[in-house]
C-alpha cells in the first residue's frame, strides 16, 4: 500500500534535539548498513501533538544489511518498558525509524507493510503511530492510523532547539 494522498490529520510532532542527533549519526551517507530503532514518546490528550523524547539505537542483536533491517534485540523493549514506568505510563511505543541510502527517501512495500502491521497490533492502545525514514539529505515522516498511511508535512515537525557542535 502506498501513502495516502488525502490530507493527513492535523497532528504536530515535536522531536527532541537528541533524537535528531542520533538520526544524523546513523544516516547512510557512506557505505554503512541500514540502521533502525524504535521511537518513544508521548501523546497529548487531545491527540493534536506527539512528542518524540527518545529513539533507541541499533543493537548488535539486530539484523542489518546495506538495504534491509530487522529489529530483533530485546534491548529496545527493555528501554521502552523502563521509560514507560519512569514517566508514569506516559512514554510509549510511537513507531520506528530506519535509514535509507538515498538522499530523499521513499518507503518500500516491505516498509509500509510492516508499519501497517505495527499499527494493527497496537491500534487498541494508540490512535496513530509514527514512522520516519532517515535519508542522506532529508527525512520523511509518516503517520499511520485507521485510515491508512499519511505523509506528514515537514512544517508540522518541530525540533526542540539544542545547541549544535
Amino acid at each position: 500500500m502506498s501513502a495516502n494522498n488525502s490530507t493527513a490529520p492535523p497532528i504536530s510532532v515535536l522531536v527532541y534535539g537528541s533524537v535528531i542527533d542520533k538520526f544524523n549519526i546513523y544516516k547512510q551517507d557512506y557505505k554503512q548498513n541500514e540502521s533502525c530503532g524504535i521511537l518513544i514518546g508521548t501523546h497529548s490528550i487531545d491527540e493534536s501533538k506527539i512528542t518524540i523524547t527518545f529513539a533507541t539505537e541499533p543493537d548488535c542483536n539486530d539484523k542489518r544489511s546495506r538495504f534491509s533491517f530487522k529489529i530483533k534485540s530485546n534491548k529496545h523493549n527493555k528501554i521502552l518498558q523502563n521509560r514507560f514506568s519512569k514517566s508514569g505510563n506516559r512514554e510509549v511505543y510511537l513507531g520506528t525509524w530506519h535509514t535509507h541510502p538515498e538522499d530523499h527517501p521513499n518507503p518500500s512495500k516491505c516498509d509500509t507493510d510492516d508499519w501497517l502491521k505495527q499499527y494493527s497490533i497496537n491500534r487498541n492502545l494508540f490512535e496513530s503511530m509514527l514512522f520516519v525514514i532517515v535519508g542522506i539529505k532529508t527525512n520523511k515522516w509518516f503517520l499511520v492510523n485507521d485510515n491508512g498511511i499519511f505523509i506528514l508535512d515537514s512544517n508540522l515537525i518541530y525540533h526542540e532547539k539544542e545547541e549544535r557542535v
Partner: peptide
C-alpha cells in the same frame, strides 16, 4: 499537572519491525 499527556495501560508491542 502532567494532564496534557495521555497515560496508557501498556507501553505498546514492538513486533519485530523490519524494512528495506
Amino acid at each position: 499537572e502532567n494532564n496534557d499527556t495521555k497515560t496508557f495501560k501498556e507501553a505498546g508491542y514492538i513486533s519485530s519491525p523490519q524494512g528495506a
